[in-house]
């Protein structure tokens, strides 16, 4: 069996499922949000000698980090696990000639891939929607300035790291709870709490995984005083704790999944 065979099998399962269309939906939704917001009120973009892409990306990124990234990851992790649960497929999957660990990590890789796909689609949709806006409002000068690809790519990498803690945690929760609504409820509650913790700038918000995507790249919306850089001024402490959450929850999930009895 090829080393990638089980990944291919996981990919086949996603055919025609909402999980596969979720990243595309997220990207289009983001592009549409930012476009409609500026279509109604574009004055803030029409500033002489100011690159409109900077403001446009900043607002798009802010909405993406604060309002959409957590629900997206919660739905994605829940959806991937729900595909198996609905088919009652664990009893069958775990009689295959490969270890439970390989199945567990194949799903995790698919999750990470779909999150990366969503990030890239978000970037593309933001760029397309900006050009579209520029077509209606040439005074914004989107066609005059080049898009700040490097800036948004940097943002995407950091927001990706900042959401990994939530992804690891929700992968574990989705495997543990049979009812798909429980992880979803926990995710929404976590998001609201994260919003308040970051907004109130409480000291412990750096340890709260749902706060990380909001605070790590907030485009000046929260101005968290807890944020500090570690590792050569590249990684923020929010991202570092998100990575720790990810590693710990993935390990717990692995131990749980490889030991549980399939009743």
């Amino acid at each position: 069996m090829s080393k990638l065979a089980h990944l291919k099998a996981e990919w086949i399962k996603l055919k025609r499922t909402p999980v596969l269309y979720l990243p595309l939906f997220l990207g289009i939704l983001m592009g549409a949000f930012v476009f409609i917001g500026h279509y109604g009120d574009g004055n803030s973009l029409a500033v002489i000698n100011q690159n409109p892409w900077r403001v446009y990306f900043g607002r798009g990124g802010g909405i993406y980090s604060i309002f959409l990234l957590i629900p997206f990851v919660v739905l994605l992790t829940g959806g991937i696990v729900f595909i198996e649960r609905r088919a009652n497929a664990w009893k069958y999957l775990y009689t295959m000639p490969l270890t439970r660990g390989r199945i567990y990590f194949a799903k995790l890789l698919i999750l990470l891939g779909l999150l990366a796909m969503a990030s890239v689609l978000f970037m593309l949709c933001i760029i397309v929607s900006a050009y579209f806006l520029g077509w209606f409002f040439p005074e914004h000068e989107f066609y005059y300035y080049a898009p700040q690809i490097k800036r948004i790519a940097n943002y995407i990498v950091h927001s990706y790291i900042a959401i990994l803690g939530v992804l690891g945690l929700h992968y574990l929760l989705s495997l543990y709870f049979k009812n798909v609504l429980i992880p979803f409820g926990i995710g929404m509650l976590g998001m609201v709490m994260g919003f308040f913790f970051v907004g109130l700038d409480v000291w412990f918000n750096i340890y709260f995984p749902y706060a990380a995507p909001m605070a790590a790249q907030d485009f000046g919306m929260f101005r968290s005083t807890q944020r500090a850089f570690v590792g050569g001024n590249w990684l923020s402490n929010y991202e570092m704790y998100s990575l720790i959450w990810f590693i710990v929850t993935v390990e717990i999930g692995y131990l749980y999944e490889t030991r549980r009895e399939v009743v």
Partner: peptide, 9 residues
């Protein structure tokens, strides 16, 4: 059966 063929090699 395609996905099983992958699992079973």
């Amino acid at each position: 059966l395609q996905l099983l063929a992958q699992y079973q090699g």
